[in-house]
């Protein structure tokens, strides 16, 4: 969450922190050995089994030129996923859980410190000053730290979700003009719902549905749908 906090701050106050991430890049370099079989980073890094990772931190997902992403990642990229620290950390914890259908066959980094450190390491190859600012600017709405950091109650989310499932299929299938909403990173879900709630996004059905939900309820839904495959 820390990056999200500082990103929100950058937008509010127009000050860009040059180091937006919390970990130790040196230790992260060691953790990165686990990634090296598939990913290159640094001067002249090329795509391998996985995409090269220059400028990955704070950038839009699915943006590395010449790399063919999984459908799952491409869909998230379309939905506006940004690889900020929070999203990367969730992804790296258990890639297949965070993004069912990802090509990345890596079981994940269980330790939070490992994740923080490796992200800090990758951040040294990313232009976080400008990228973080762009990422926050690209959001349709500005959400407070408090709103973004609510831990959603999955059981409550499951109940509330029954309302969504009149139109959005729980299987993840989609027809006509109603998109699939399962397996979204929760940050994306929260931003999307708040964008409807604040009537920044136009659809009146979604404005109405989101309008009836409090921050806790949106967080609960985000947590529930994130866990579905």
């Amino acid at each position: 969450m820390k990056t999200l906090l500082s990103m929100a701050a950058t937008v509010l106050f127009g000050v860009y922190a040059s180091v937006a991430v919390a970990g130790d890049p040196e230790k992260g370099g060691k953790v990165f050995k686990k990634c090296k079989a598939c990913h290159a980073v640094g001067d002249g890094a090329k795509n391998k089994v996985g995409p090269q990772l220059n400028n990955i931190v704070g950038n839009a997902a699915g943006a590395v030129e010449g790399y063919k992403y999984s459908k799952a990642l491409a869909a998230q990229a379309d939905a506006g996923l940004i690889w900020d620290e929070a999203a990367l950390s969730e992804f790296l914890k258990k890639p297949k859980a965070y993004m069912p259908g990802t090509k990345m066959s890596f079981s994940g980094l269980k330790k939070e410190s490992d994740r923080e450190n490796v992200i800090a390491y990758l951040a040294t190859f990313s232009d976080t000053d400008t990228l973080a600012a762009v990422a926050a600017d690209e959001r349709e709405v500005t959400l407070s730290d408090a709103t973004l950091s609510i831990e959603g109650d999955v059981a409550y989310g499951e109940y509330l979700a029954s309302d969504c499932q009149t139109c959005h299929q729980v299987s993840g299938a989609s027809d006509g003009g109603v998109p699939a909403i399962v397996g979204w990173p929760r940050v994306e879900f929260v931003y999307a719902m708040h964008a409807y709630k604040q009537k920044v996004r136009p659809n009146p059905v979604m404005q109405m549905m989101a309008g009836g939900l409090g921050d806790e309820e949106i967080a609960a839904l985000a947590a529930y749908f994130e866990g579905l495959e």
Partner: peptide, 11 residues
């Protein structure tokens, strides 16, 4: 959207 809703509610 109504087509999506129809598929959604029937499933």
């Amino acid at each position: 959207e109504s087509i999506g809703w129809y598929a959604g509610i029937t499933s």
